[in-house]
């Protein structure tokens, strides 16, 4: 099934929950209403014509200009050999969306990573904590306005440029 047909099938069943289909994009995608995400995804998984048994990928993108964080979902059907992409646009100040871990178990790790790096809260997630970064890390590094701290547990986060050091040494000798 083409992505256009998948979108129309979803649109016929859920109406305004899926909007703005971007057919011209290299990887065609549509927006999904975050409040109705789980019911749309249930259709994607359980509809025998769609048959998206696999949540291929779950990532996030930060858009500071429009003050949004997008959570990007990629679905794949092994049986029907087609795939589909949806984005849930969230408010950047308080990004939260319902978890998909009830539908696909593999969403658990992906959502933890998305929480770790972008700070998206996945409501209903069974174990939402940091997965890559240390537990005591502050901030979400993949947000565009993330600034590195001066040190981490006393380890400085900058190293002097060796060329500058040579210049300082040469000055000291002269």
């Amino acid at each position: 099934m083409k992505q256009q047909e998948i979108f129309e099938r979803l649109h016929a069943k859920h109406g305004g929950a899926v909007t703005d289909f971007q057919a011209g994009a290299k990887d065609p995608w549509c927006k999904v209403d975050p409040a109705r995400l789980v019911e749309v995804c249930r259709t994607l998984r359980d509809d025998p014509e769609l048959d998206m048994k696999f949540l291929e990928n779950l990532t996030g993108v930060d858009y500071p200009k429009t003050n949004e964080i997008a959570v990007v979902y990629h679905f794949t059907s092994y049986g029907k050999r087609h795939d589909f992409c949806m984005k849930a646009m969230l408010d950047r100040e308080d990004p939260s969306v319902e978890t998909l871990s009830g539908l696909w178990q593999c969403a658990r790790y992906n959502e933890r990573e998305c929480y770790d790096l972008l700070g998206v809260i996945f409501e209903g997630h069974p174990d939402l904590r940091r997965v890559l970064l240390p537990d005591d890390w502050e901030g979400y590094p993949l947000r565009k306005d993330f600034t590195e701290k001066d040190d981490y547990h006393g380890i400085p986060t900058v190293r002097p440029n060796p060329i500058d050091l040579f210049a300082i040494k040469a000055k000291g000798k002269a």
Partner: peptide, 19 residues
């Protein structure tokens, strides 16, 4: 030695001689 290829990354220590 100095962080190398990843020395501008947020998560990489800039040289083991700092610890």
């Amino acid at each position: 030695n100095c962080g190398g290829l990843f020395q501008y990354a947020y998560s990489v220590c800039k040289g083991v001689d700092q610890i």
